[in-house]
């Protein structure tokens, strides 16, 4: 089996995120970054495969320079090699442009047997990048997978759909997105945490990946933000104040009038 690559995303900490008033995109540079929580199951499945197959696990992220802290976190979870795809030109990429960057990096890392990603990111929540990256690489993708095993060099995947469970057989290479929940996700390793700061993060930019400025970032993104507006809220209702007891009684009376209660 060739190496496994996990693509993760550094997401802004919800409490610190700001929207750029000019470009209308999230200002990731100002925010604290966290590992996208939905990526944790993908990392866990990668580690279980690593234990069984003894393959190298490479972790990849596209993001600003400070996203390397998130990669180091994945190192503590068991990753062998960390690669950060970072370039000002990547900023503002939509899912297609993002998938192009990832696909180029994956090509550069090939051969690989499996690319794992979280089902979706907690910020964009589009779930589009895994299948879109796969199609750009010309390889199959399977989404929402909860278990992976290997038989005779072929991956056996358990996929959860809206209608049930599918057991699929796919020869490498392929892209898999993993369910947002697993029975168990390992914590970081103390040994690796103590070495985290010394670990090298390889940085690849647009030039390394032979991507032109037109193909990526805001310019390379076919979907564009025309405007953003705040949802205007006009107070239309009544405001009741007072002790909880009294408010509850008034509410019950109102619900009764409105026919939500039987008597």
């Amino acid at each position: 089996m060739e190496k496994i690559i996990v693509c993760v995303k550094a997401v802004p900490d919800l409490r610190s995120v700001k929207v750029d008033p000019e470009t209308h995109t999230l200002r990731r540079d100002s925010a604290d970054l966290l590992l996208n929580p939905h990526d944790a199951p993908a990392i866990e499945l990668a580690m279980r495969l690593k234990e069984r197959l003894g393959v190298e696990v490479v972790v990849l992220t596209m993001g600003p320079p400070n996203a390397s802290s998130v990669l180091r976190r994945v190192y503590s979870l068991g990753a062998d090699r960390l690669i950060l795809l970072s370039d000002r030109a990547f900023a503002g990429s939509d899912t297609l442009a993002t998938s192009k960057v990832l696909a180029k990096a994956l090509e550069k890392l090939s051969p690989f047997s499996l690319v794992l990603m979280g089902l979706k990111s907690i910020d964009g929540e589009t779930a589009q990048v895994p299948p879109e990256t796969a199609v750009l690489l010309g390889i199959p993708s399977v989404t929402n997978v909860r278990n992976i095993s290997v038989e005779n060099g072929v991956f056996i995947l358990e996929r959860v759909t809206d209608y049930g469970i599918e057991e699929l057989e796919v020869a490498p290479p392929l892209v898999v997105s993993v369910t947002t929940k697993l029975d168990y996700i390992r914590p970081p390793s103390l040994k690796r945490l103590l070495k985290e700061r010394e670990v090298e993060v390889t940085i690849w930019n647009a030039e390394t990946l032979r991507l032109s400025q037109e193909e990526v970032g805001l310019r390379g993104s076919p979907t564009q933000v025309a405007s953003v507006f705040e949802k205007t809220i006009s107070s239309k209702g009544e405001i009741w104040e007072g002790p909880p007891e009294e408010l509850s009684e008034r509410l019950i009376e109102l619900l009764r009038q409105k026919g939500f209660l039987k008597s």
Binding site: D94, T95, L96, S99, G124, E125, T126, A127, Q128, V129, P130, P131, E132, T133, A134, V135, L136, S141, T143, N144, V160, T161, D162, S221, P222, T223
Partner: peptide, 21 residues
């Protein structure tokens, strides 16, 4: 699940934009 899995494969193949939600 199905729509969100297929739409990006189509958009990627055609290299067109795809909005979500």
């Amino acid at each position: 699940h199905q729509g969100s899995s297929l739409a990006p494969r189509v958009a990627g193949e055609l290299q067109v934009g795809l909005c979500a939600h």
